[in-house]
Nucleic acid binder design. Structure first.
Lengths: 227, 227, 227, 227
DNA sequence: TATGAATGAGAGTTCATTCAT
DNA sequence: CATGAATGAACTCTCATTCAT
C-alpha cells in the first residue's frame, strides 16, 4: 500500500541485480546512521555516499535527490510500523474491548521501540521535508485498522466511533512521539506504556453507549437533587 | 521564567530604547511571516532582514546568529503558552478533579489555537535546530503546574501522581500536535477537544486510589468466581 | 532599447555605488577574457570570479546565474553594434543609393571589427544558450534602420522593399559572421569588405523598379528575337 | 573526401558487419533526435545510448568519446551537402554565368532545406565543440567547386576570381544560415531564395572584367566632365 | 562483444556572517 | 549605530567514461 509519489521523489531505478540491491541497502543504512549520529544538519549526500562506501554518482543512480532518499527511508519505516499495527488490530477483531485497547497501544509502542533511535531520527528528518503525505498515509491506515477493530469489538457500541478513533489515535501516536523526543523522558517509556494502556481502556470504556447513557442519567439525577 | 541559554544563543543586547525594541519586534515578526509563507527552507537571514526593513548588519547587532533568532522566537511563543496554562492550573487548585482536568486541556488547546499557523511554523523551526531544551523547559513547567493542581484537587489522591502527570501531559500535548500537523484533521479540532476532555476525565478518575482499589477488588472477585 | 528578459536572466541588483559598478565591470571583462582564451567550455562561474578578483558570492549578488551573465554581456555588445549601425543609417537618409549601401556595410563591419576577438567569442557563447531573442532583437533593429534608410534614398524606389531588406541584411550579417568564424579567412576581411560593398551596390541597383523594368523589357525582346 | 581527423576523433572501428552498421546508424540517429528535441544541453552519452537502444558500453566501442560522435555526425551531414553542391557545380561548367549563379544558390539552399531542423541542430552542436576544421573543410570544398565553375563559365572572366568566390560563398552560406536561425524568418525562405538569386546574378555580372572596365570608363568620364 | 553499475572531478549555486564605510 | 558589499566553505547534483561481469 504505497502512497503515490511525485516524479521528484520516485526511485530512479529498481535495483534488479544483487549488487544494486546491496548498494541501495548500504545507502539507506548509512543515511540512518548519519541521522542518528550527527542530526539532520550533518546529513549531506556526499557524506551519505562516503559512509555507504559508494561514490556520490552511484547514490544518484538510485535516488533522484536527497529528498527522495529520505522519502524512501521514512516511507519504509512507516510502512513497517503500519503493517505491524494492522496485523495486531486484525488479530483482535471480535475480542473484548480491553483486549482491543491493549492491542493497539502495545503494537504501536512496540513498533516504535523496535529501533527507537531510528524512529527519533526519522521523525526529525520527515518534519523538514514535505513528507506530510507519508505521515498522513500512515495515520489513515491506522485510522482504518483501529476503526475496524473497535467496530467489531465485544462489549460496546460507540456513539461516535469516528471521533473516538481520531482522538485515540492522535493521543497514542502523539503522546508516544512526545515521550520519544525528550532525552529525559524516554527512560520512563515503560511507565508511560502502563499508564497509556490504562488511559486507553478508561477512555474507550467511557465512550461506550451504555457508559454515556449512565453518565447522562447520573447528571440528570444530580440536577434533580440539587433542585 | 526564561530557560538558561548558552552564549551562542543569547541575545546580543537588551534593547532598552524604543527604536531598538521596534527593530527586534520587526525582525521577529518578519521571521514568522517568512516561516508561514515559505517554510523553513526559505528562511534566510538576508531575507528576514529585508522583510523586516532593516539591514543584515543591524539584524546581527541584536542576534548573534540565526539560531539565536529562532531560539528567541520559539522561546517567546512557548513561554506565552506556558504562562497561560500555568495561570489556568493555579486558578483551579482545590477544585474538583473534573474541573481540573478540563482546565488543563482547554487552556492548552486555547493557547495553541490562538495562532495555529504560527504554532505549526514554529514546531517545524524548533525541530531543525537544537532546541530540545526549550521544549523540555516548557514540558517541565507544564509538569510542575499540572502536578501541583492535581495534588490539590478535590476527590482523589493518586497512587502514582508523577506517572499520571507524565502520561497525561504527553497525551494532551502530543495528541494536539498530531491534530495540528495534518491538514485534513485540523478542521476536526472541536471534535478532538470534546473527546480529549472526556478522555482526560476518564483517565484521571480511573487513576484515583479509590478507583484503582475498586478495580483490584473487582479483579479478585472475578478470579474467585472463576475458581 | 532593451529587450524584455525573463526573471531568470534579469540582473539581480543595479549597482548604484561606485564599488559595485567596478565589480560588475570586472566580472563582465573577466568573462570576455576567459571566453577569448579558453573557449566556452572553460567558462565556469568560479573561474570568472577568480579572474575578476572577486568572490563567487559577489558574482551571484549581481547575476542570478551564469546564463544571465552571458546574456548581459551579449546584449551589451549587440546593443553597441546596433547603435552604431542605426546612427550610420540615420546619417545617410536621403543620400544616393550607393552611399546608403556603403553606409550599412561599412558601419556593420566596423562595429564587428572594433573588437573582432570579442565578437567571435560572443557569437559562440550566444549560440549555446537560448539567446535567440537577443539576436532577433538586433536583427529587428537593423531591419528597421535599413528599411528607413532605403525608403528615403535618392535614385530608386524598390518594388519589394521588405524582401530586399531581409535578404540584404541576412547576406551582410551572415556573410560577415562566416568570415569571422574561420581562422584562415579573417585575414582577408579587407578584401571581403571591398567585395561586399560591390555586391551590395549591384544588388540594390538591380532591385530598383527601373532596373527591374529594364530587365523585363530585355527578356521580352530576347524572346521576340528567338521566335 | 574526408577531412583529416586526430586520433581522439577517429571512429574506433570501421563497422564492417551488418549488425555493427546498424548500431552506429542507431546511435547517430538517436543523437540527432535528442539534438532536435532537447537542444545540446540535454545531449548526454547515456541518453543517446538509451534512445538508440544500446548500452553505454557499446556506444564507446564505436566512438572514442562524445566529441567523436558529434564529429562524425556533423561531418556526414556536411559531406552530404558538399556533395550535392559539387555535383551541381560540375553539371553547370561552361554554362552561361546566370545559370552558374543559380546553380550554386539553388543547390546550396536545397541541400540545407532537405532537413532544416537537423541543419539547425547540427549548427549548434558544431559550434560548441572544436569543429572548425569540419566547417573549414566544407567551405574549402565549396570554394574549389564554385571557383572551377565560374572559371569555366560563359560570358565573363573575373579580374579577381578568388575574392569573388570568397565573398559570394560567404554571403550565400552565411545569409542562409542567418535565415535558418531565426524562427520568424525561416517562413520567408522562398522570398529569400528569389532575392538571393537576383543578388548573386547582379554581383557576378558586376564583377566581370568587362563590367569593371565599363565602370572605370564611366568614372573617368565623369571626372573628365567635372573638370 | 555487449552490458550497465560504478566512478568522481567538478559544475552551478546558496547563505550565514563580517567589516569597511 | 546602521549599512550592504563582500566573503567562501559547503552544498546538491551531473555526466563522460571505465571495467568487471
Amino acid at each position: 500500500m504505497t502512497v503515490l509519489k511525485s516524479d521528484r521523489l520516485m526511485s530512479r531505478k529498481q535495483p534488479t541485480q544483487a549488487r544494486s540491491q546491496a548498494t541501495v541497502e548500504a545507502v539507506l543504512e548509512a543515511t540512518i546512521q548519519l541521522l542518528l549520529h550527527g542530526g539532520s544538519s550533518a546529513l549531506t549526500t556526499n557524506r551519505i555516499a562516503k559512509k555507504a562506501g559508494v561514490s556520490i554518482g552511484t547514490l544518484y543512480q538510485y535516488f533522484p535527490g536527497k529528498e527522495a532518499l529520505l522519502y524512501a527511508l521514512v516511507g519504509r519505516h512507516l510502512d513497517k510500523a503500519s503493517d505491524a499495527v494492522e496485523r495486531a488490530c486484525q488479530a483482535h477483531r471480535a475480542m473484548p474491548l480491553a483486549a482491543c485497547s491493549d492491542a493497539f497501544v502495545n503494537s504501536y509502542i512496540d513498533a516504535k521501540t523496535g529501533n527507537p533511535e531510528a524512529s527519533r531520527a526519522l521523525y526529525h528528518a520527515s518534519t523538514e521535508l514535505d513528507m506530510k503525505d507519508l505521515g498522513s498515509g500512515m495515520i489513515a491506515r491506522l485510522h482504518r485498522a483501529v476503526r475496524a477493530m473497535l467496530f467489531a469489538a465485544q462489549g460496546g457500541k460507540f456513539a461516535d466511533l469516528d471521533d473516538v478513533v481520531l482522538t485515540w489515535v492522535a493521543a497514542v501516536t502523539g503522546g508516544t512521539r512526545q515521550i520519544f523526543e525528550e532525552d529525559d523522558t524516554i527512560a520512563r517509556l515503560p511507565v508511560f506504556r502502563t499508564q497509556l494502556l490504562q488511559m486507553s481502556r478508561a477512555y474507550l470504556e467511557a465512550s461506550t453507549v451504555t457508559a454515556v447513557l449512565e453518565n447522562c442519567v447520573a447528571i440528570i439525577e444530580a440536577e434533580d437533587l440539587s433542585d
